[in-house]
């Protein structure tokens, strides 16, 4: 590996770190620069001025905004996420178990959607222009064009209203068998898989077709290789970089999808926690959740960039 590549990757990581700093700045100031005073909002209209002043000092609200931002940031880095306004519980405790739930949902979706999307994307590219390819293309454009909640509600209509295979929106709290666990995860995972796979199929197909259009793949076809052989033997090894890039980029759509899907299926994850937090205006909770999501999203995007750099043979 040349020093040039190492430099490029280091620069990408530095940019990611800088971006995360700007993002945390934006998140903090979007929520901290509220019209109205947080202490007054918390204590309600009837609070005495002394109580408000006391709370302001206790919450460091009387310090300059930049100092508060640094306080918050250093707390965030040392794992202190602050205390919820609404029920006075440490935000870290609220998030803890739910974070695992969300990661599990995302993980299962990834395990299902990646093989599915790669198979569909690569075969669609292999038989480019065929009826099969057109059906896949129309389907993916359709799914990409509609909001995630329409995908989720359609899945409910098909699988629980018409086919009656799965329970609709309610999630049973008493889980006793593996079958019930499967049922709980089925609908959220199906909906998320649709959303993420559609993106992934589209990008994978485009990446493979880009490679197919190169002269050396054309040569393979001209010397008499079959279409599957041309794609699998000649094109695919060179398309691995762009495909991995496409996978990482598509997985970043999980962030938007998970917010909708957890809400619609009442799934106990951090996205649901955050949406509930927005209704109650529980700012420390929202800041922490937002930073977790931004971090995940940025990680995936940076990963996609680095893969693209590493996979580019011209840089070796």
């Amino acid at each position: 590996m040349s020093t040039y590549i190492v430099n490029l990757v280091t620069v990408r990581l530095l940019i990611a770190a800088l971006t995360l700093l700007i993002v945390s700045f934006a998140v903090f100031f979007a929520t901290a620069m509220l019209p109205g005073d947080t202490a007054t909002i918390l204590l309600g209209q009837a609070a005495t001025p002394e109580a408000v002043a006391g709370l302001r000092t206790a919450m460091h609200l009387d310090e300059p905004a930049l100092v508060r931002f640094l306080h918050w940031l250093s707390g965030l880095l040392s794992g202190d996420l602050g205390t919820s306004y609404v029920n006075n519980v440490a935000v870290a405790d609220l998030i803890g178990g739910r974070f695992v739930n969300t990661m599990r949902l995302a993980g299962i979706t990834t395990l299902i959607s990646v093989p599915l999307a790669l198979t569909l994307g690569i075969t669609a590219a292999m038989f480019q222009g065929s009826l099969y390819d057109r059906i896949v293309t129309i389907f993916t454009i359709g799914v990409i064009s509609i909001p995630e909640f329409v995908v989720a509600t359609s899945a409910v209509l098909v699988f629980s209203v018409y086919l009656k295979w799965l329970p609709a929106l309610s999630i049973a709290s008493d889980v006793t068998s593996i079958w019930q666990i499967l049922k709980i995860y089925a609908m959220p995972v199906i909906s998320l898989t649709f959303v993420v796979s559609a993106q992934m199929i589209r990008m994978t197909r485009a990446a493979v077709i880009d490679t197919i259009n190169t002269p050396y793949v054309e040569t393979a076809l001209l010397k008499g290789a079959s279409r599957p052989r041309m794609v699998l033997r000649h094109a695919l090894p060179n398309a691995v970089g762009p495909i991995v890039n496409a996978v990482a980029l598509s997985l970043s759509y999980l962030v938007g999808g998970v917010i909708i899907v957890e809400t619609i299926f009442n799934y106990p994850g951090i996205a649901k926690l955050m949406v509930d937090g927005v209704s109650t205006r529980d700012l420390p909770l929202i800041q922490s959740c937002a930073m977790i999501f931004c971090f995940g999203y940025l990680t995936l995007i940076t990963l996609a960039d680095i893969v693209a750099i590493l996979a580019n043979p011209r840089l070796r």
Binding site: L18, T19, I22, V23, A26, V27, A30, T31, M33, L34, P35, S252, V255, G256, I259, I260, M274, V275, G277, V278, R281, L283, I286, A290, F293, C294, Y297, L298, I301
Partner: peptide, 23 residues
């Protein structure tokens, strides 16, 4: 470019939630 790119790396739904929570 750097600042706007950073803004772009906040997932859109998340920015929406944060702003609605704040104002």
């Amino acid at each position: 470019s750097r600042v706007l790119d950073a803004m772009n790396s906040i997932p859109s739904k998340l920015s929406g939630l944060v702003v609605v929570a704040a104002v």
